[in-house]
Write a protein that binds this DNA or RNA. Structure first.
Length: 589
RNA sequence: GAGCCCAUAGUUAAAUGGAUAUAACAGGAGCCUUCUAAGCUCUCGUUCUAGGUUCGAUUCCUAGUGGGCUCACCA
C-alpha cells in the first residue's frame, strides 16, 4: 500500500520532469512522513543536493497548488530538509485512505501472487531418528515452518518435506551403544528384551535411553579401534537388513519418530512428505555408479568421490570404499525423488551454515548428474543456536539441551509472571502453552535467518520487551477493547466521514499498516522471516504508545469510530504477521 | 595451511551507500480511582585496527587482529 502512495508522489515528480524516484522514511516524524533524497538528481544537474532540494520543494508546491491536486491528495505539505524533499501527509486523508483500503482487501491484504503456479519444496526439521531432538532442530523446525508460510503467503504452492537419517553411521553407533553394558557386550536379543520391558515408559524416557546409547557408542568409536570395526560392521548390517538387528532397529526408530511427531504437533508443524535415507541409499549407489561411467565421479583410495577441486570446491566421498553411500550419495537419490514426485520450481533446504561447503559440492555434482536441477536447489543458511559463553552443543559430549527441556523452562517463566500479577483473571493451560510457544518461536525468528542466535538457558526466553509475549499482549488488549466497544461498534470496518484530526500516534500506526505488504514481500525475496518479526514488534510498540496516549472507548463518537476501526485493523495485521511466523495469538492474557 | 562466514552500547540484536547509528535487556528516575503495568514516559551508554573508493561508508575494496565453521570414506 505504501507503494501506491509512492506512486502518487511519483506522478507529481514526473510532472516536473523527474523520471525515476526512490523514497525513504525520514528519521523522525517532525521532519515529514516520506522523504525524497536529491543526491542522484543533484549529480545529474551538477548542483549541490541541498540547493536542488530547496528548488524542487518550491516547484512541487507550485504544482500542487496550481493543479488543485491538494484537494484529492494525501500530501499536505512539502518541505526541503537539507538534501531531502520531505512530504507531510494529511492525517485524516491518510486515515481514510489506509483504513478503507485495507478493509476492502480484507484478509488478502499483505498477500502476493508472485508465486502463482510455482511449486516450492521446503526441506526442514530433519532430525536423526535414534538421536536427541535438540535445540538446533527446534530452531530449524521453527524457521522452516515460518519460511513455508511466508512462501505460501506469496502465492507459492509449498510442500513441506522432511529428510531423516534412519540409516548410516550414527545409527550404527546407537546400536553399538545399546550393546555395551558395564559388564561387556550383550546380544541384540537381550537389547530387544530390555526394550520390550520399557514399552510402558514415557516417550521421553525411551528417547533418553537411545540418546545415552548414542553417547556411549560415539565415545567408544572415538577411543577404541575395536569399537570402530564393530560400528562399521553394524553399519553394513543396517544396509543389509540383517535379521539379528531388526527388532531393535525398528523399535528404536519407531520410538524416535513417534516422539518427533509430538514435537511437530506441539509447535504446529506438519509435513507433506517424510523422506528417509533408508529409501534413498540403493538408488544413490546406482546414480553414483552411472555418474562414474560418464566421468562425473572418480575413484580415489578405493572410494568414489566427486572431484569438487576441479570446480574450486573440495572433493567429497559419495561412495565409501566398502561400496556404501555416504550422505552425499544418498542425497542424489533424494533429489531425483523430489523432481519425479513433485515439479519444483525450487527446492529449499533449510540447514545450518556449517553445511554450506557440503551443499556447494552437492549442488555442483547434481548439476552434472541431473542437469534439470541446475539453479533450482537452494541452501537456506540457518544460523545456529550458540550456547552463551559455552562451546557448541554436542550430543556426544552430552551437553545438549533438548527441545522439551527448553519448552518447560520457558513455560515455568511464564507461570511465574502469572503468579506475580495482581489482577488474576483466569488463564487457561492452553493459553499458557500458546504464550510459551510464541516466546520460543519469536526468540528464534527475530534475528536474521543466517545469524547465530546466542542462547542462555539462565535467561531462557524473554517475556518482556522485544519478545513473543509482548506481541501477544497487544492482541489481547485490542480484543478486550473491541469486546467492550462492541455495543456501538457497527462492525463494518470502513469509515465514511473523515476524522477531524489524527494524533501523531495514530499516524504512526497508519503508516506502519500501510507498509505491511512491502514487508511480506521483502521476507519472501530474502527467504528471511525476521523482517516480519521486526515489523510485528514495531507495530506492537507503536500500538502501545497509542494505547497510552489515545483513549478509544471514552471519546466522542466520531473519533471513537475511527479508533475502533484502527485498532481492529492493527489486530488483523498483527495476527496475520504472527501467523506467518507460526505464532498463534490469544484473546486474553 | 586453504576456503567460507562473522566483528555495532555492559549484553543480545537493527540500520536498499545517505539526515542526529536504532531497539530490547541490564542500570538510574517517574507513571495504575480512567480501554489488561507481560505496559508507558524520561535517562545513562555504541560502529575491532590501518589504509582506499565516494559529495557521503556500520554498509563496498585491500591488509591486519580476534572469533566461528568446513576441508575423504560421519550427518
Amino acid at each position: 500500500m505504501m507503494q501506491q502512495i509512492y506512486k502518487q508522489l511519483e506522478e507529481a515528480l514526473k510532472s516536473v520532469g523527474i523520471e525515476r524516484a526512490e523514497f525513504s522514511t525520514p528519521p523522525n516524524s517532525d521532519m515529514g512522513d516520506i522523504a525524497f533524497p536529491c543526491f542522484a538528481l543533484a549529480k545529474e544537474v551538477g548542483k549541490n543536493p541541498a540547493e536542488v532540494a530547496t528548488e524542487l520543494a518550491a516547484t512541487l508546491n507550485e504544482v500542487y497548488a496550481k493543479e488543485d491536486l491538494r484537494e484529492s491528495s494525501l500530501v499536505k505539505e512539502i518541505k526541503a530538509f537539507g538534501p531531502y524533499v520531505n512530504f507531510f501527509l494529511d492525517g485524516p486523508e491518510l486515515a481514510s485512505y489506509v483504513l478503507n483500503g485495507i478493509s476492502q482487501q480484507g484478509d488478502a491484504y499483505g498477500t502476493h501472487a508472485d508465486g502463482k503456479g510455482k511449486q516450492v519444496l521446503i526441506e526442514f526439521g530433519c532430525p536423526n531418528p535414534m538421536k536427541i531432538f535438540h535445540l538446533g532442530h527446534l530452531k530449524n523446525l521453527i524457521t522452516g515452518e515460518s519460511v513455508v508460510r511466508v512462501f505460501e503467503n506469496a502465492g507459492y504452492d509449498v510442500k513441506r518435506v522432511n529428510y531423516q537419517g534412519d540409516v548410516g553411521m550414527h545409527i550404527a553407533k546407537v546400536l553399538y551403544g545399546l550393546q555395551i553394558t558395564d559388564d561387556g557386550q550383550r546380544s541384540f536379543a537381550d537389547v530387544a528384551k530390555s526394550m520390550t520391558e520399557m514399552k510402558d515408559a514415557s516417550l521421553a524416557e525411551k528417547v533418553a535411553f537411545l540418546g545415552k546409547a548414542y553417547a556411549r557408542g560415539a565415545n567408544a568409536y572415538e577411543e577404541d579401534e575395536n569399537a570402530q570395526k564393530a560400528v562399521a560392521r553394524l553399519n553394513e548390517m543396517v544396509y543389509e537388513h540383517d535379521p539379528s538387528i531388526q527388532d531393535v532397529y525398528k523399535t528404536g526408530r519407531g520410538w524416535s519418530l513417534e516422539y518427533f511427531d509430538t514435537i511437530y504437533k506441539k509447535l504446529g508443524s506438519h509435513f507433506d512428505r517424510m523422506y528417509f535415507e533408508s529409501e534413498t541409499y540403493e538408488r544413490g549407489v546406482q546414480l553414483v555408479e552411472e555418474g562414474k561411467e560418464k566421468g562425473i565421479f572418480k575413484e580415489s583410495d578405493g572410494a568414489i568421490i566427486f572431484p569438487g577441486s576441479e570446480y574450486e570446491l573440495h572433493d567429497r566421498v559419495f561412495l565409501n570404499s566398502k561400496g556404501y553411500p555416504t550422505y552425499e550419495g544418498k542425497e542424489l537419490a533424494l533429489a531425483e525423488m523430489h523432481f519425479t514426485e513433485f515439479n519444483p520450481y525450487q527446492v529449499i533446504h533449510v540447514v545450518g551454515k556449517e553445511q554450506a561447503g557440503y551443499f556447494d559440492v552437492l549442488f555442483k555434482a547434481l548439476e552434472q548428474v541431473m542437469p534439470h536441477t541446475k539453479g533450482r536447489e537452494y541452501h537456506l543458511v540457518g544460523g545456529y543456536l550458540q550456547l552463551k559463553g559455552d562451546q557448541k552443543m554436542s550430543s556426544r559430549k552430552g551437553n545438549v539441551i533438548s527441545g522439551d527441556e527448553l519448552l518447560s523452562a520457558v513455560q515455568k517463566g511464564i507461570q511465574k509472571i502469572l503468579q506475580e500479577r495482581e489482577d488474576e483473571h483466569d488463564i487457561s493451560e492452553e493459553t499458557i502453552e500458546t504464550i510459551t510457544s510464541a516466546a520460543l518461536k519469536y526468540a528464534m525468528l527475530k534475528s536474521d535467518v543466517s545469524q547465530d542466535v546466542a542462547f542462555d538457558m539462565e535467561e531462557s526466553v524473554s517475556t518482556t520487551g522485544d519478545s513473543g509475549p509482548y506481541l501477544l499482549y497487544i492482541v489481547a488488549r485490542i480484543s478486550s477493547i473491541l469486546e467492550k466497544g462492541q455495543e456501538t461498534n457497527n462492525k463494518k470496518q470502513t469509515i465514511s466521514n473523515l476524522p477531524s484530526s489524527i494524533t501523531s500516534e495514530e499516524k504512526k500506526l497508519l503508516l506502519l499498516l500501510a507498509t505491511y505488504p512491502e514487508v511480506t514481500k521483502r521476507a519472501v525475496q530474502t527467504y528471511d522471516p525476521s523482517h516480519i518479526a521486526k515489523y510485528t514488534f514495531e507495530l506492537a510498540q507503536a500500538f502501545n504508545a497509542f494505547y497510552a496516549a489515545c483513549p478509544v472507548l471514552t471519546v466522542e463518537e466520531d473519533v471513537r469510530a475511527v479508533r475502533l476501526t484502527l485498532v481492529s485493523l492493527v489486530r488483523q495485521i498483527m495476527i496475520s504477521g504472527l501467523r506467518l511466523l507460526g505464532i498463534e495469538t490469544v484473546e486474553k492474557m
